[in-house]
Write a protein that binds this DNA or RNA. Structure first.
Length: 166
DNA sequence: AAAGTGATCATG
DNA sequence: ATGATCACTTTG
């Protein structure tokens, strides 16, 4: 599957489709890390009260309005970097949070494992970080409610936008 | 169950 | 300027 097309799709579809794809991280020293995505979450635009952009554009959320394939990285709880991939149409703030890859379970661990921090924020996929599809299809992907979004509306909390390979 | 940790954003 | 709020992890 073409990764650009995949990322053009609405965040919930893209999040589901990204499970099983491979994240390729190329470090400045030439090291290449390659790991399959096992878990994602979708954040679906200004109407999604769980999405950072639900209160519109700010300096931080501006990145979410950029084109699909843009990388959004932010610091959470003062400690953890969160890796997101912007999806959907430009100017529509949707993104997929990478919550797990093979070798690292949990969004904070993913970035630690792949050496990702704020320096990748607002970069495009392709060089330092890229997606690959090797044709692997995860045998079973479950959908469940997103975690850590207690501030969102009950309807948005209930959406099954967390996707995990079994 | 709760702490550790710091950028971000809305207040004043 | 200050304070509240976190898309988490670890420890007990």
């Amino acid at each position: 599957m073409n990764m650009n097309e995949l990322l053009m799709r609405p965040a919930p579809e893209a999040a589901r489709a990204l499970v099983g794809k491979i994240l390729v991280r190329r470090l400045p020293d030439g090291t290449v890390l390659r790991s399959r995505i096992t878990e994602t979450e979708a954040y679906f635009g200004e109407s999604d009260t769980a999405c950072h952009a639900c209160h519109g554009r700010t300096k931080r959320t501006e990145v979410l309005y950029h084109r699909a394939g843009t990388i959004y990285v932010y610091l959470c709880y003062g400690i953890h970097w969160m890796l997101n991939l912007v999806t959907g149409p430009e100017d529509d703030p949707q993104a997929v949070l990478i919550r797990g890859v093979e070798g690292a379970s949990g969004p904070g661990r993913v970035t630690k494992y792949l050496h990702i921090d704020k320096s990748l924020n607002d970069c495009l996929l392709g060089d330092e970080l890229a997606l690959e599809d090797d044709g692997y299809v995860p045998p079973h992907v479950t959908a469940s409610p997103r975690v850590g979004i207690g501030y969102a509306s009950p309807e948005d909390q209930a959406r099954l936008w967390r996707f995990r390979a079994k």
